[in-house]
Structures are given as structure tokens and as C-alpha cells.
Design a protein around this nucleic acid. Sequence first.
DNA 1: CTGTTAGCGCCTTCAC
DNA 2: GTGAAGGCGCTAACAG
Lengths: 339, 339
Amino acid sequence: MPKKKLHETDGPTSYDVASLAGVSQSAVSRAFRKGASVAPKTREKIMRAAKQLGYQPNAFARGLITKRTHLIAVVLSNLTNLYYPEVLAELTQRLSATGNRVLLFSLASESDVDAVLGQIWPYRVDGAIVAARLSDEQIQQFNDRGVPIILYNRVGDMAPASSVCCDSAAGERELVKQLLNAGHQSFGIIAGPEDSYVGEERLQAARKALLNTGIEPFFHRGGFDYESGAEGLRALLDQSAGKLDAVICTNDAMALGAIDCARNVFELSIPDQISIVGFDGVGPARWSSYQLTTIRQPVRRMTQAAVSMLIERVENPGMIPEQRLFGGELLTGKSARLG
Amino acid sequence: MPKKKLHETDGPTSYDVASLAGVSQSAVSRAFRKGASVAPKTREKIMRAAKQLGYQPNAFARGLITKRTHLIAVVLSNLTNLYYPEVLAELTQRLSATGNRVLLFSLASESDVDAVLGQIWPYRVDGAIVAARLSDEQIQQFNDRGVPIILYNRVGDMAPASSVCCDSAAGERELVKQLLNAGHQSFGIIAGPEDSYVGEERLQAARKALLNTGIEPFFHRGGFDYESGAEGLRALLDQSAGKLDAVICTNDAMALGAIDCARNVFELSIPDQISIVGFDGVGPARWSSYQLTTIRQPVRRMTQAAVSMLIERVENPGMIPEQRLFGGELLTGKSARLG
DNA sequence: CTGTTAGCGCCTTCAC
DNA sequence: GTGAAGGCGCTAACAG
């Protein structure tokens, strides 16, 4: 019984290409690597044979030896968030452009992180970009396994990890400052879930900026989604007995919900009777019905940084983790009176 | 010089676990496979040793032998579309739940398909779910390589491929029927880009339904995005000299743009002066400012079907491609007068 | 520049 | 139920 090709369904191997091109298997291998030393003539023969057979090197066999899989794990918490699709699109684009592939994981709930990690390890990813809350132990697992990791809009509390963030505090301070300048007096804050890192950052920053001027804001906690923005507005209006001046939402989705609720339920005129601001700068924020005043995260620069920092660490394992903080851009829409 | 473990950085192998547990390597291998015959005692020893070392089977080595990578390629055309994130979230969820991993590809432009295919083949994916326009040759490549494929909201013109679609034609017919019943007379259609399969389906269906009753609709072609919905409305109003009754947009994003433009630019009251309908049933369509009348795609059922059809074909290579068509649900919002 | 020779880490017959 | 070999498809030293 012949050894070769029991099942013809198994796709061509480098041996098939080799014999068709009349060279050795290792010649084929070289022809498909970048820094190879192959005679142009030979290479051409090989490439032709390969094309004819539809041959493509098996990434699994290659990865087994080189220990470079060109796989990057991307972990996101909630894909349905208005903000993440843009991030994911950019990341995928940039990673592809640098010859890497995206292994995508999305968390149903933050508690699934360990399960996801267990799914990542077998694939020996070259690195990971994570926009989800990781414990120090979880970060440490990446370090222990020598997998470079970039935290996106998060930082490691103790464990060392590179990170890329938008400066939440600066953004909120700017918003508060401008709202105060415009003469607002009665503030409300609609915050995100407690387990969101940026959510808490923004909340603290906004609150502190207000407290500094002696203002104690009304407060409601939502879930970062449109509906909870509407609920939040209701709650704040209730707490403040209606004399609410300005509402700071810790993301855009909630701000949009709050705007709609203010207009459609309470028939408030925006920004005349009430100012509402958000954070992120998502697409719908620019829609003409909203024209939300918000802080736009520099997504392109951030994803760009995340990818290049990651690649750098993949190629240079010894590097010390680096933190990069990006300033947001104030989008002055028409949902708030600024000073 | 000792053979084992030149670099301690290389992570534990099954041999390491074996010697720690005092068994053979193949015992370890068995312990990590489902239908293995291992004594409970032995298995436990092994698992303990594995945990201690942080061992996880190498998916690359395993895949090399078993020819099952548990990798599913997911190819989307434009992630920034309002509709795809939901689909992707569902797909990722369901694929994860069935022990598969998502290798994500997103197309910058439809012409990149061949480049993406070239990136897929080396990874020997078990299957693919594609929501992008593929030529028959491209579909044939999947068949040739024995990679089961599910087309999402597309069909193969000639080449055989399984597919999952929402019934565009039925949806549009229903919308048109109800709009006609309500007495609308002057119709406009804002269509998507020509290279969109569903876009053209919806366009044809709507147009045909109108022509059947002797109505020739005004027509504008957009790009499926919010802005082009606004532009579209402008153009239609222009064409019709203002006596436009009803606007059919072939997706929700454009419908939302059209609504905003109608209200904020032309100060038209919706649905009193003009009815606007969409297609998809995305999140923002339900926001209180819009309450869009549209056809909601049964995303959960569709993704569910896509995944289970795919898995089935992976495990049963001989199967004949199957097409599944799902009916949408009419969401009667407040953006249109229906009859 | 080219072919030969070992493995990468694991699964998979086989004997036992 | 368990261990000993062989090999999946390829890369990485080596000789030539």
C-alpha cells in the first residue's frame, strides 16, 4: 500500500509541490519564507507548481516549529456596545496589515474571563489585546506564559502590563469646567456599571471636579446602555425635584438615552433647559437629532498604538510594559451650553 | 548538553506532565481527549500534574494530526455597520459554546476578498461563515478545499453553498402592502450600494411590489449609512417636487438618516406628512426619537441556524448544501402610517 | 544555493 | 488500561 496520500482530500503538502517542481521539500519551504536564500529560477518554478496545486503552507505545522503563530487574541467584553465595533474594526484592519490574524473572544459576562483564558492558551497566541477587566492574577498568567498583552482602556492595578487608554479624567474635567463656565448649578451624573474601569474613572473625575467647586451632584448608576440613560434621567429629575441643570453621562449611549427621555418624556428643551454630555464620540452622537457634546476618543491613534506596541513586544520579549494615555477631543455639539 | 528544555520559556509539554505524574506521554494525551480510556485514578494524577504545571494541550500539534483545528473563519464586510456587531456577537457566542474559536476577518473593501481567502487557507479552518459577496469561483475554492461554508444573508449564484438569509422580498412586500393600505401614493426608495446582495434584493422586491399597482417610485442610491439616508431624502424630495408620501429605505441606518433629515432640515412631521420605513431592526431603530417602522431580522435564529448548519457539515462532510430562509418580523413603530 | 537530517508536540495504531 | 513507536507538515541546522 502506497504511503503517500491515502486520502486525496488532505490538501497538497510541500512534498507534493516539491516533486511537481522537481526540487527537494526544503526548497519549497524556503521559497515560502521571507529571508530565504533561493535562486530566483528555482523560486519561480516552485511558486508555479504551488499555484497549480493550490498549495499554501500549513500554519499549524509552521507554528509548531517556529513558535510564532501570528495569532493575536482580541478579547472584548460587550460587542453590542456602540463603541467597540469601531475599535474591533480598526484592530482587525491593522493586525491584518501586519501579517497577524485575530482570534476573537467576547465575554457574555465579566466572570467568564477565566473560561476565555482557558480557550486562548491552547492556541499559543503571539499576543493579546484585552478590553475587559482582568484581575492581577489573570494578567500574571499572560506574563508567566510569555504572552505580551495590551490592556485597552484599562490598566493593571499591580501586575505589569502595557496599556492604551483615553484620558478619562482630563476629559471629564474639561466637560465640567465648561459646564460650570456656562453657569450650570445643579448637576447630575449617570454612571456606568461598577465593574467598568473607564466608567469608574470618569465618574470619579467628574465628581471630584464638581466637589472642588462645592457642588454635590445627584447620582444614578446605569449599565452603559441607551435604556439606562433614560432611566437615569428620570431618576435624577426625581432626586433633584426637577431643578436639574446639567447631566454628565459616562458614555454616549446613556447620554443619547437621556436626551431622548428629556425631550420625549419630559418635554425639556436641550440645551436650553438642560445640558447633557457624554463620553466616547460614537457615530450616533453626531446624528443631527443629537449633536451630542462629548469627548471623542482618538480611536484610530489608540488602536494604532495598541497594535504597534504589541508587535514590538512580540518581537522583543524583554521589553518593559509601557502605558500610553491619549487625550480626547472635545466635540462641541448642541446638547449642552458650554462656557 | 541535555536535550530537554533548552529554553525554559517554552511552556510545559505532555512529556513534562507525564514524568511529573509518573506515566507515559500517551497517557497524558488520552487524559485530555473526550472518548479516552483512562483509569479514573490515572486521569486524576495526570490532571493534577497538568494543573500544577499550567499545561494545556498545544492546539497546533493536535490540529496537525487530527486535521480538526476548531477554528471557524468569520468574514464580515463592514463591521461599522449598525447591524453586524449584533450578528458577530451572537456568532462568537454560539461558536464558543460549541468548542470552536473565531478567526475574524473584516473587509476594507469588497475587492479584498481574495486577499482574505489567502489568509484563511494556511490556518486550515474547519469551516467559514461569510457575510460578504463571494464570486462563484471563490465559493468553489471552499468546496475544493473541503471547507464547509455558510453564506450569511447571501446566496451562491451557481456554486453550491449553504446559506442563511432573511426573506428580504417578503419583508419589503409586507411594508409596501401596508403603506399602500394606508393610502400613500408617492413613493421613494433609498437603496444601498449595488454590490450588496440583500440591498438589491430589497430594492427589487419593493420596486416590483409598487410597479404591480402601477406606481413608479422615485429612486436614490445610497451607501447603507446614516449620511446617505439624509442625502437620499433630500434627493427624493427634490425629484418629487416635495410631494413625497412614503420613503422605503433598504436598511435602518439610512432610514434613521432620512428621518432626521426630514425633521431637522425640512421640518416635516413624521409620520403625518411623510412615512419612512427601514429594514433590519437594529438597536437605534427602537430609540424613542425614532421608533422606526421596519422589518426585524431574526438574528438569534439566523445565527443559531448558521452555526448549527456549519457544525453539522463539519462533522458530516458529505452533506448537501442547504438554504434556509427566515421571515422577518414587522416592527410597527411610529415612523410610518400603516393600513 | 541546495538537499539531507532531525525534530516541534501531539495523536494513533499497535502490542502488552 | 497502558506504553512504545511512527508520523502529521514543516522549519532549522547542517553538509555539500
